[in-house]
Amino acid sequence: MQDMLVQVEPLIPALRRYARSLVRDRVAADDLVQDCLERAVSRWYQRRDGNVRSWLFSILHNLAVDQFRRSASRGSHVPIDERDENEFGEAAAQEQKLMYQDVLNKLAKLPRDQQAVLLLVAVEDLSYADAAKVLDIPVGTVMSRLSRARERLQQELERPSIGAAGNIVSIRSARE
């Protein structure tokens, strides 16, 4: 048990980061990480003598995919009575937050397979081989999806956001 704790505990912040980037909800991400850790503890004996980090990310990724499939089939549910009204809308406090949100929104437009590869390699700093293990795909597929994801995200970032175009006011002459 102590061996497991020593190997797993330092990985929890990275798991939380990856979960939050996947589900984009702090509470749901924490639940996802907890489910991942529960599964890892209960199946610790099943792990191979490989990289514990990629094994945990595989568990987390597979749980997230299962969750996406379930929610897609039944739709989203927001209990309005249990939420604070500030959770439904939030004014931008500064330009940095707007840019950050814009990047997240454009990242969310990527197909899930490209999104997962980009997050694992670029954000979580997994090697191509480890990302391939997590996603259970060949390394070449990781490289091609990553290339397409980077290219598509760059195109999205160079394109003005929809909200930005709506904020432009044309000035007309008084003589018209």
Rank of each mutant, 00 (worst) to 15 (best):
M1D: 09
M1N: 10
Q2M: 04
D3C: 07
D3R: 11
D3I: 08
V6E: 14
V6W: 09
V8R: 09
V8T: 06
P13T: 06
A14W: 08
Y18W: 05
A19K: 01
A19L: 03
A19R: 03
R20W: 04
S21G: 12
L22M: 12
V23E: 02
V23C: 10
V23P: 03
R24D: 09
R24Y: 03
R24T: 05
R26G: 10
R26N: 07
A28S: 07
A29V: 01
D30S: 14
D30M: 08
D35W: 07
C36S: 15
E38N: 15
E38D: 10
E38K: 12
R39Y: 13
V41N: 03
S42L: 12
R43N: 15
W44R: 15
W44E: 08
W44P: 04
Y45E: 15
R47N: 04
R48T: 12
S54W: 02
W55Q: 03
L56N: 05
F57V: 05
I59D: 01
L60N: 08
L60Q: 04
H61F: 12
N62R: 10
L63A: 08
L63C: 05
A64H: 15
V65L: 15
D66H: 13
D66N: 15
Q67M: 14
F68C: 08
S76M: 06
S76W: 06
H77G: 04
H77D: 08
V78F: 06
I80S: 01
E82Y: 02
D84P: 00
N86G: 07
N86H: 13
F88A: 04
E90T: 10
A91R: 14
A93R: 09
Q96G: 00
Q96I: 00
L98G: 00
L107M: 13
L110N: 03
D113T: 15
A116K: 02
A116Q: 10
L118P: 00
L119S: 01
V121W: 01
V121D: 04
A122P: 00
A122T: 06
V123L: 09
E124Y: 01
D125S: 12
L126D: 02
V134H: 04
I137D: 07
V139Y: 03
V139L: 05
V139D: 10
V139A: 10
G140D: 15
G140Q: 08
T141W: 07
T141P: 02
V142Q: 06
S147H: 12
R148Y: 07
E151W: 03
R152G: 00
R152P: 00
L153A: 01
Q154D: 12
Q155F: 01
P160D: 01
S161P: 00
I162K: 08
I162A: 13
A164D: 09
A164M: 11
V169P: 04
S170P: 10
S170N: 08
I171K: 11
S173D: 13
R175G: 13
R175F: 12
E176N: 12
